[in-house]
Nucleic acid binder design. Structure first.
Lengths: 198, 198
DNA sequence: GCTATCGCAATACAACTGACCTGTAAACGA
DNA sequence: TCGTTTACAGGTCAGTTGTATTGCGATAGC
């Protein structure tokens, strides 16, 4: 066996270079040569790890979704004691908004993928696959809150869950466009939660 | 003076050809040659009407926003009698969702522009300019409803207006991704309105 | 009829794109 | 030591991109 290299580690490095470019210029502005230069490697090396550009895009999308999920998990996991459903929801929603530079970059990349996904079957499957789990997690919290009497009995958890997801996504767009400051978006989320919880 | 031609009419024709391509392949998939072919004209003629590609994009964005506003205006204007604030809001929101093929195309193009706008100062100005007016229109309806006792007194019209806009935008994304069917999105809007109006 | 101007076609061009294809060095097992 | 496999650098290629240039026909005022 010849020289051994951690393939996954290299691929992650390349994906992160791709994000840096995509968050500045969009996915279509990221050529293989640009990504290679940003990662500090040659075009040949990049192609050694990703046979086609499409492979690279799909891998990078999977990686960024994974990181976002882990970030949310870490934030929720670090909550003290036994957090209420409302707290869980609020912290998750807040982590989904582009409030700091890192998550702003992440959201910019996600949006870039979203646009491609609308026209690209393969990316669409990836983009859609996380939604049901998130929706179910939200619905479960609302169900718990209903049992505790914190949410009115006539609210449908699944409906409210999808409303929350859609709201955050819409707000995200406006924060990225600088129509809303981040704190204002968070205030709007809280206002919505005020109505959901009694 | 030589032959006179209606420049604006030609430009509109070209813009519409651009939309057809952009809604299928995205804005970056629309080269000048593609657009010219779709419009049934030569590349030379297209360049005669738009000196640069950027000029074409900016013009087409202005045109599509104008058409969307006109569509909403027509729908709202055709409401019988003296429509209630809730009816006005619901019909406007419904028209903003991509429920039929035409508005789906329109939304796909808007999204394509949105992504560019995040990175492009000139487009961002255009993309943002319609929001305040829409927000104020929504807020005005909610204010009217509060006076009529149809919305609780402690609701802030401006907050609720922005929540509505963001919600529809988030839902639009998921409809375009085929995560939600159109009717489901409309049902979610109605559910949200049920909570806003007493 | 002359000519300036407009409308448009055709072509050219330099830059860039992703995919592919070599050549080579290094590491390991036999 | 040899052969095989992996890691990478560099170059090539055909195709596409936006823009610039040139030329020519039609039309209107003089």
């Amino acid at each position: 066996m010849p020289k051994r290299v951690d393939h996954d580690e290299r691929r992650h490095r390349i994906a992160e270079a791709l994000w840096r470019i995509a968050s500045e210029r969009g996915l279509d502005g990221a050529s293989l040569r640009d990504v290679a230069a940003e990662a500090g490697i040659s075009l040949g090396q990049l192609q050694h790890y990703f046979r086609t550009k499409d492979d690279m895009l799909v891998f990078a999308l999977g990686h960024i979704s994974e990181l976002a999920a882990r970030r949310i998990g870490a934030r929720v996991g670090s909550l003290a004691g036994d957090p209420s459903p409302r707290t869980l929801l609020r912290e998750t929603l807040a982590e989904m908004l582009p409030l700091d530079d890192k998550s702003r970059t992440g959201q910019l990349v996600q949006i870039a993928y979203f646009v491609r996904a609308v026209h690209d079957e393969r990316l669409r499957r990836h983009a859609k696959e996380g939604i049901p789990a998130l929706r179910e997690f939200f619905a479960a919290q609302i169900r718990r809150a209903k049992e505790g009497g914190d949410v009115a009995a006539d609210r449908d958890p699944d409906t409210e869950a999808m409303l929350l997801i859609s709201l955050v996504d819409g707000l995200t767009g406006y924060v990225l466009l600088d129509v809303l400051p981040g704190e204002e978006a968070l205030r709007l989320v809280d206002a919505h939660l005020d109505r959901l919880f009694t």
